[in-house]
Amino acid sequence: MSSTQASSTELSAVVFDWAGTILDFGSCAPMGAFVRLFEKFGITISIEQARGPMGVAKWDHIKALSLLPEVAAQWERQQGRPFTDADIDHLYEVFTPMNAAVVADFADFIPGALETVAALRARGLKIGSTTGYNRPIMDIVSPIAAAAGYLPDNLVCAGDLSAGRPAPLMMYRCFAELGVWWPATVVKVDDTDVGILEGLNAGSWTVGVAVSGNAMGLQLHEWNALPVAEQQLRREAAASKLRAAGAHYVIDSVADLLPVLDDISEKLARGIKP
């Protein structure tokens, strides 16, 4: 792969999140696993609660759930003491195989994803990827994606570096592996607020995907079954979360990305940076 970046005023790469952005419409694979994980320990959490910290590394996600007052109270009743980091370690060890067991069932590509990536390749752009999944889970997801034609130029997983999202370290690893060094020539596409912050903290353009991701939380058939008026209400609610995180652009899904890249390209050519 070439390590020479031609210009600071031309797009060089797009870095995609995985679940809710490229595949798994609604980012549904981890949700049931989180609920079942806590059920194993006698604790009830809702899908909405489970979705709250989505996008961070899964250990951090479990930690964030343990800090919810109602979860902490249930744990103290069950265990007779507060959560410790050792407890989070144990829950994480239990969670990984639970998530890995279902992730293949939610590995369908979001409509338009493969076509969009092909169009980016045709423009000469590099394709990076970061994820809140760890390596064992991505060892299942990556071959499924590759068999269907999705082979990003790199993959940075939660746990690969000393800090995950919203820190920019996974983006920095992408820059290094892709051979790009002007952050303003890179676009981060993500469905979570921490994923948007990951891109912002790296100095890149950010694009939130509102309908296909965690902010909406519906599978494709559920989304398609909604009346148009209800779709619009939910679209606005999901988009507002991503805008609040600082997303430069918000679209329904990656199928709508190309016009955004055209707009960013025009801004870069005029010397405008994120």
Rank of each mutant, 00 (worst) to 15 (best):
I272T: 11
S2T: 09
E236P: 09
L114N: 03
M1E: 00
A167T: 06
N214T: 14
F106P: 02
Q5G: 04
D262H: 04
P152T: 13
H90D: 08
A163S: 12
T44I: 07
P152S: 13
E76T: 15
T116S: 04
E222L: 04
V228Y: 09
F16T: 13
G271A: 09
S12Q: 12
A215Q: 14
P136Y: 10
L220Q: 14
P259N: 09
W18S: 12
N201F: 01
F34N: 09
V180A: 07
S7R: 10
P97N: 07
M1D: 00
D190F: 06
H248E: 09
A184W: 15
A247F: 09
L257Y: 04
P111C: 07
M98C: 02
W18M: 14
D191A: 10
D153R: 11
R165Q: 07
A148K: 15
G199R: 04
R243K: 15
D17H: 03
V71T: 13
T206P: 07
A269S: 13
R121W: 01
T130K: 04
A50N: 08
D105E: 15
K241I: 15
G246W: 06
D191W: 10
S12K: 03
L178D: 00
R235H: 14
G32N: 08
A6W: 00
Q49C: 02
I62W: 02
D17N: 01
M170A: 10
H248N: 15
E236T: 14
V102N: 02
G179P: 07
L11K: 01
H248S: 15
V186F: 03
L169T: 05
P82L: 06
E177M: 14
A122W: 00
